[in-house]
Design a protein around this nucleic acid. Structure first.
Length: 427
RNA sequence: GGGGGUUUGCCCGAGUGGUUAAAGGGGGCGGACUGUAAAUCCGUUGGCUACGCCUACGCAGGUUCGAAUCCUGCAGCCCCCA
């Protein structure tokens, strides 16, 4: 067991899946500030929950005084990493990549400090790969890659055995990532590469290349993948990935995702993704075991994560929205605050004149919201007690809505069932 | 090419002339319970300002007071013979 603080922390958090030479790494880390790198795939203009493990890993190194490099794979992204992928990937266009690199870079500011003596460095491997000629690359890099070793890599073998096969392009991916490591070692003295466990093959390829080309001893460390107790990848819902970009996944949705993590997964999430310390971790684990209904761990996880990614304001908004969306009184609100709370809720516009005279029949209103498909369904829903106006149960099928039913200047809030909301704006 | 079978609501599947808007199950949607969980229980599940009317049992016609049910033609699927 290492006596090293950082490695101890990573160990108790369960973040060390594999490590090329843990004793050597501990010695290296003790010898002074080191530079660590992790690569990020710019397949979209936003990072998602899956990347958070990696960002947090860099952050942990940075907090321990080391310098992180976040490498955005502008070049490797053009090729596509076959690791863990069952099929050949579609190539991204250069413009799309440029846009993605930009978006991803911005989000990293939540996780990493870019100023100071251990300030993070953001690099794009397109910068050094774009002018590297094919012939030069083959002579410099390709020469150091025995095909036998490459064929032995899990990522390659799995694909060769599958029906999908593997193109030469994807086969070559490993060389590019391996060369990144060498380049970073040369230019930035980077001797450590971290990553998810699916990156082991690529990382060790880089270490081999470093030994051959530079005679340097490089180090690799991988973290386990973040999966649920039944083996599915975390960060996905039926409706898609959980993104870090507030425009793709609102702070409220983000917050709710973590609040709803299964008991069986929550402690692992806290260990892997947060900086909640060991004492509090123990306390939360006990609280979950003794009183699971309180969801103390989930609440803390959601709070910590939302605060990190969306800041105090985002967290506040998410908490406020959660209170109301889960049945709290709506009372009298302003359009602005309702708009914020119900940002994720579909809304439709209705002519304000409908509220005049006899008013707007509730059955018609429900159809206008899209919560029901027909008048019959609306009547049934009311009869079953499943319809709420401004979070108050509707009991009268003949109710007609007037201006006095508005929750704010122009909005009425409809709900069917526990949490299907829709807004009507009367303009 | 010849013979036989089959086609039902979101899905599976009963129903062979009338009380069938169509049993039963699944799924969905509500409600109760609960931990914003799981399990369980209950209700509901074509449309319509609605004790009534309209549309529906592959499609199009026909028989009948009355058809998902009988007849004819067409189409889809399945099996057997060539």
């Amino acid at each position: 067991m290492s006596q090293h603080k950082l490695l101890d922390e990573l160990t108790w958090r369960g973040l060390i899946h594999q490590c090329t030479d843990q004793a050597g790494l501990a010695k290296l880390l003790d010898s002074g500030q080191q530079t660590v790198y992790i690569g990020f795939d710019p397949t979209a203009s936003s990072l998602h929950v899956g990347s958070m493990m990696q960002l947090m890993m860099l952050r942990r190194f940075q907090r321990a005084g080391h310098r992180p490099i976040a490498l955005v794979g502008g070049a490797t992204g053009m090729i596509g990493d076959p690791s863990g992928k069952s099929e050949e990937r579609n190539l991204l266009s250069a413009e799309q990549l440029q846009e993605n690199v930009q978006g991803v870079a911005n989000q990293m500011r939540c996780f990493l400090e870019f100023e100071g003596s251990s300030g993070a460095i953001l690099l794009n491997n397109f910068e050094w790969m774009q002018h590297y000629s094919y012939l030069e690359f083959l002579r410099d890099v390709g020469k150091s890659f025995p095909v036998g070793v490459m064929l032995g890599k899990e990522s390659v073998r799995a694909r060769l055995e599958s029906e999908a096969g593997l193109s030469y392009t994807e086969f070559s991916y490993m060389l590019l990532q391996a060369y990144d490591f060498v380049h970073l070692c040369r230019q930035h003295g980077c001797r450590i590469q971290a990553g998810g466990s699916d990156q082991w093959g690529n990382i060790t390829a880089g270490i081999d290349l470093g030994r051959r080309m530079l005679g340097e001893q490089l180090f690799g460390i991988t973290a386990p993948l973040l999966t649920t107790s039944d083996g599915r990848k975390m960060g996905k819902t039926e409706s898609g990935a959980i993104w870090l970009d507030a425009d793709r996944t609102s702070p409220y949705q983000f917050y709710q995702y973590w609040r709803n993590v299964e008991d069986a997964d929550v402690m692992r999430c806290i260990a892997y993704l947060t900086e909640i310390d060991r004492e509090e971790y123990q306390a939360l684990a006990e609280a979950t075991a003794n009183d699971p209904g309180r969801r103390a761990a989930q609440n803390r996880l959601a709070e910590w994560m939302t605060d990190l990614v969306h800041g105090a304001d985002g967290l506040n908004a998410a908490v406020r929205a959660s209170k109301i969306l889960f049945g709290g009184e709506i009372g009298t609100q302003s359009d602005a605050s309702l708009g914020e709370i119900f940002a994720d809720v579909p809304s439709s516009e209705v002519d304000r004149k409908r509220l005049a005279d006899d008013g707007y029949w509730i059955v018609d209103a429900l159809q206008a919201t899209g919560l029901v498909k027909s008048g019959g369904e609306a009547r049934r829903a009311i009869k079953d007690g499943g319809v709420y106006l401004n979070n108050v149960r509707v009991t009268d099928q003949q109710q007609h809505l007037t201006e006095s039913d508005l929750a704010s200047e122009t909005v009425m809030v409809f709900r069917k069932g526990k949490r299907n909301y829709a807004l009507l704006r009367f303009l």
